[in-house]
């Protein structure tokens, strides 16, 4: 069988095709640059403006009145950690377990409904979730609280974690589950010890990204955690959070506070950056998945 190139006559418009090819490649490169430019710009601008105000005081001191030197955002940093902690306590178990349910036990309409609702939930504006937490917790407790803020963040994390868990579990080859079942291992142990373990690096990635996203959320905290200028670690009291503090400082008329807001923004970005680095580190050694 001689399938030589001679049989295919080069089309006459080869030059036009080459031109179109180059134009499309250039367009793709431009699109790529447009994608990374804002990120680079944000990163460098925030670094430039924030790093000068960033010092140890920022991490260990409380906010000080305007004009006094050495104020920090210790309360907001701790507040954010508490809020994310509460959010993770709610978001991670619910997200992972519903992901397991959809992927491993779904044969029926309920799984479809959960999946559908999760997709919608991930598209709901975060401020609406804040309002939901307000109506459910703040009104009933008669005050703003870390609990309400953490709850809102938790709800926000659920769809991401559910989706990632489901998709990572679906990537685990069925043959691995069958191997386990064929050894006489029960279904739940197979899911927990084989499927979930095999998918774990991907699921951890998803959880960290969900946390990173929740850490930067401002809107759902506005009328749940509310913010606090004082040291507060009780979860039934209003609590400070980095994004809220940045917002409050940025709209203030004081130069000092503006600088602090920049530093806060820088810390937030750094946080997201570090979480992403951890993600890369966790997933670097892919000991899992499909061969």
């Amino acid at each position: 069988m001689e399938l030589t190139e001679k049989k295919f006559k080069m089309p006459g418009n080869i030059r036009r095709r080459k031109l179109v090819n180059s134009v499309m490649i250039i367009l793709c490169v431009i699109a790529g640059i447009i994608t990374i430019l804002p990120l680079l710009y944000i990163f460098f601008y925030t670094t430039k403006s924030g790093i000068t105000s960033l010092n140890l005081d920022f991490f260990i001191n409380m906010p000080k009145p305007v004009g006094e030197e050495g104020g920090g955002m210790a309360n907001a940093i701790v507040g954010s950690i508490i809020l994310i902690g509460i959010g993770s306590l709610i978001g991670i178990p619910v997200g992972v377990m519903s992901g397991i349910y959809i992927s491993e036990y779904s044969k029926n309409i309920t799984a479809f409904i959960i999946k559908f609702v999760t997709d919608i939930l991930s598209g709901i504006p975060s401020i609406i979730i804040g309002i939901f937490a307000y109506g459910l917790i703040v009104i009933n407790m008669q005050r703003f609280s870390a609990l309400a803020g953490g709850f809102a963040l938790g709800i926000l994390m659920i769809p991401t974690i559910t989706k990632v868990t489901e998709e990572m579990l679906k990537l685990v080859p069925q043959s691995i589950r069958e191997a386990s079942l064929a050894l006489g291992v029960s279904r739940w142990k197979t899911v927990l010890r084989i499927a979930l373990t095999t998918a774990s690096s991907g699921i951890i990635t998803g959880i960290l990204l969900a946390i990173a996203r929740a850490a930067g959320e401002t809107a759902p905290l506005l009328f749940t955690a509310f913010g606090n200028s004082f040291w507060q670690t009780e979860i039934d009291q209003p609590i400070a959070a980095l994004p809220l503090q940045i917002f409050a400082y940025a709209i203030s008329p004081y130069e000092d506070w503006h600088r602090q807001a920049w530093a806060g923004a820088f810390v937030l970005i750094l946080l997201v950056f570090v979480i992403n680095l951890i993600v890369r580190f966790v997933t670097r050694n892919k000991f899992s998945g499909n061969q």
Binding site: S175, I176, A179, V185
Partner: peptide, 26 residues
Amino acid sequence: GMVFQKPNPFPTMSIYDNVAAGLKLN
């Protein structure tokens, strides 16, 4: 017991753990 068409060792486990998997998981 069952042996499958494509080799399907547990990818997250070592050689040792794979052989012991049936006992361990039970």
